[in-house]
């Protein structure tokens, strides 16, 4: 299975779940791996006190990772592709030049044809440049989700608890997160410090998850039918 990490960044009334920056890279390379490893082992990184509903957190973590998979992230293959394209254009130009300069003689003409198409066709025919096989990623296994306490997040949560004003607390959290190298958490706090409510955060920043005290899956939103049956009509 693939080892993925998802941040549960503590905020005032819950957590913001966000995939680690390694996720996009792991999921981008996943189709090249053997299908037997197409499962997700997600480590949910939380401050030391886990206050969220486990099934909701699991679902939110999968959503956050899925978003990271679909959003992609930065591709490191950009510059080599540009270089390769420049090389192809150079070959084409030189091949054409050789053909024109051949004056009908077969030796330079053959060299020109080789540069124009021959080499690339032969490499394609012999499958020498074949990329690693890629198939659509379809994880067959249910994700395994574990909860891991992160000391850095715990320190930030403790520091924020002493600050009453929400915006000031988030600004402090952002500064502390940057100092600890927790860029994912810092971006969440920076977005919240501007006054945005966690529920309306854009998906690239994170997905809000209320803590257990705010929203409990065990407690139904509507009263049970048995409770209302005794009310005289």
């Amino acid at each position: 299975m693939m080892n993925l990490a998802c941040w549960a960044v503590p905020v005032r009334d819950g957590y913001v779940l966000r995939a680690d920056r390694s996720t996009a890279s792991i999921l981008r390379t996943a189709p090249a791996r053997s299908p037997q490893y197409w499962g997700w082992r997600i480590a949910l990184l939380q401050p030391q006190s886990q206050q969220f509903s486990a099934p909701l957190a699991a679902r939110a973590a999968v959503i956050a990772l899925d978003y990271a998979r679909l959003a992609g992230g930065d591709s490191s293959a950009g510059s080599p592709r540009r270089g390769r394209r420049a090389l192809v254009w150079m070959e084409l130009a030189l091949g054409l030049a050789l053909l024109i300069a051949s004056g009908g003689h077969w030796v330079p003409a053959l060299a020109g044809v080789w540069l124009l198409a021959g080499r690339r066709w032969l490499r394609w025919f012999l499958d020498l440049d074949g990329r690693v096989a890629r198939a659509p990623l379809a994880p067959a296994q249910a994700p395994l989700i574990s909860s891991d306490a992160h000391a850095g997040l715990a320190r930030i949560e403790r520091a924020m608890q002493d600050v009453e004003d929400d915006a000031a607390a988030y600004a402090l959290g952002a500064v502390q997160a940057r100092a600890q190298g927790l860029d994912e958490a810092a971006e969440v706090y920076e977005a919240l410090a501007g006054g945005t409510h966690p529920s309306v955060l854009p998906p690239h920043v994170g997905f809000w998850l209320a803590d257990e005290a705010t929203y409990n899956l065990q407690r139904p939103a509507l009263p049970a039918p048995a409770a209302t049956s005794g009310v005289p009509g």
């Binding site: 693939m2 306490a149 992160h150």
Partner: peptide, 14 residues
């Protein structure tokens, strides 16, 4: 902490 180890694992995997 275990969370820090999990981050390292994910980054190394990537």
């Amino acid at each position: 902490s275990q969370g820090e180890l999990a981050v390292i694992r994910a980054r190394v995997e990537a």
